[in-house]
Design a protein around this nucleic acid. Sequence first.
DNA 1: AGCGGCTGTCGAAGCGCTTCGACAGTGGAA
DNA 2: TTCCACTGTCGAAGCGCTTCGACAGCCGCT
Lengths: 335, 335
Amino acid sequence: MVTIADVARHAGVAPSTVSYVLTGKRSISPQTRTKVRESIRLLGYHPHAGARALATSRANVVALVLPLRPGVHLPVLMRFVTAAVTTARRHDMDVLLVTADQGAQGLRRVAGSAQVDGFLVMDVELDDDRVPLLRQMAQPSVLIGRPAAVKGLTCVDLDFEAAGARCVDHLADLGHRYIGFLGAPSVVYQRNTGYAQRTMAGFGAAAMRRGIASTALPAEDDYESVLVSVRSLLRTQPAMTALVVHNEAALGWVAGSLRALGRRVPDDVAVVAICPDELAEQMQLTSVQLPAEELGRQAMELLVARLNGHPTAPLTLLPPKLSGRASTAPRLRRA
Amino acid sequence: MVTIADVARHAGVAPSTVSYVLTGKRSISPQTRTKVRESIRLLGYHPHAGARALATSRANVVALVLPLRPGVHLPVLMRFVTAAVTTARRHDMDVLLVTADQGAQGLRRVAGSAQVDGFLVMDVELDDDRVPLLRQMAQPSVLIGRPAAVKGLTCVDLDFEAAGARCVDHLADLGHRYIGFLGAPSVVYQRNTGYAQRTMAGFGAAAMRRGIASTALPAEDDYESVLVSVRSLLRTQPAMTALVVHNEAALGWVAGSLRALGRRVPDDVAVVAICPDELAEQMQLTSVQLPAEELGRQAMELLVARLNGHPTAPLTLLPPKLSGRASTAPRLRRA
DNA sequence: AGCGGCTGTCGAAGCGCTTCGACAGTGGAA
DNA sequence: TTCCACTGTCGAAGCGCTTCGACAGCCGCT
């Protein structure tokens, strides 16, 4: 292994000088600098990460805590991971992969051994048991998701309330006056999954604001259930001409159910989905996307900011973006 | 930060003694051992990873080099990653995430700074430009995939030849005598993607061995092309009663194409796919699976073995496993 | 009683890096 | 000319751990 001493000897300077060339923490004459740089290149020198970590108490590594449970949408996860890694690299950081199944235990171990300088934790739930730990750890962390209390944390999330509202506004602007909401399976609302509830809330509030009649129902993820839910929505509100769907798994059955009930998309019923963009693209649905890249990038930027001692807001909400596609159209006024 | 000196003081012993308790490299009296263990627990001590790495020149971290280009099947990738991480943890190793887009450059950096003890490189192609680098690096590596020359390497892969053969055998055992092969898009065969060619080769050889007439054709991944390819196969070999498909993207169109041409699955044409299990499960296809977990686990075990100085075979091929589902049936002898 | 070989523990050196204080050398102000 | 303030470089200490050689105490042997 080539050490800093080798480089120093080769360049005819002291090790400390090489270090200063590398870190730029003291001024070095141009001649010396180029000489040292040349030696570094020639010898193929790379500073020993462990030694550097020991001396600076900075590892230049962040932990990425990934949920690997079934049910996460993998394309979105991957886009997120890619963005996070890319952003980390732009700040000369590496990424240590920690799977959520290692639990709080794993976090403690990684944090305790000073392997990483900070944590990026995905898929945080309303009352996540890792939150108290993260709060008291020496290393800063950024959470994707939104636990009940964000005080003392740094959280990034899509603004699901705004997303729900955005759907309503889009449909209202198109002239729709009766809108239905097809939500996640009811169990999702039972356990504390904040984003589902917040979307609903945003949807409901926006509808009220715009003077629009709304009806909401959960949906399970098989065809029969979706059909039942959709039928029930139509029965409750026969004048319904638009539907907001916040349920990836049910998405595939919605158009079919509507067709089975004699409604065509978008002419009889306009559909807006809140879902990953690929799905929407594939089914040609107007949708509010889950901005995975943006989330990953932002989260990592915030983490880096905290590592550099900058204060950060406890909660950053990304504004929803709606992409118009074939599943929405202005309300048809029948003769 | 709690250091080994703190623990030593608390337990009334020398730092080296604590170290020996931790590593077990010298015998320690039971009394001392429990005393030290207790102090460790009480103080919440974790050895500093960097310091340890510096002293032992072992980081206890392996790099996982992931392809994040489009086209990789993410569920399979994730299963693989999970298995690799889990296996690593069982050997007290952590996993550093390196994305393939960082290229050889990235490998060199990570290797040079002694951040990791070894590399697990996924998705290696026949003439991968990282292979020469990996060969000459100080750290050992295990490759998933199979470059042209495996000498001096450690590679793990599914035995694609055997997979092709396994399909033929299954169909032959069911009485089929005329079998078609629907391959990857032709560009895949043009660039050097070993596994596609090897599957073909295994398929062809097995057919010859069993005295079976075989015809093969590539397929693009849209409905029209698949239809054209299937029609062409049937025209070339009108007596064809079985089809092996090695093309995930085309898979969705195969049954439809056959139906459009007046053939029903499995009665008129039996279909065997070589694809990830979820896909096969979802479409109810008899298939040879891509054993992602097994691959990840094996690869990591081999890497650990190499890290411990054990020699490993340059090539480990996993035997294919065929799962029977609704798309194959014995050949129907028509009246 | 004396000796050799164990066992269990200690102290110190060293892993490769950063960083602090020291200090020559230089140029400009007094 | 003297003095001061820089600028650029060096040497040494120290980060927290492992590991090697040393060695005290003990047992069992002659």
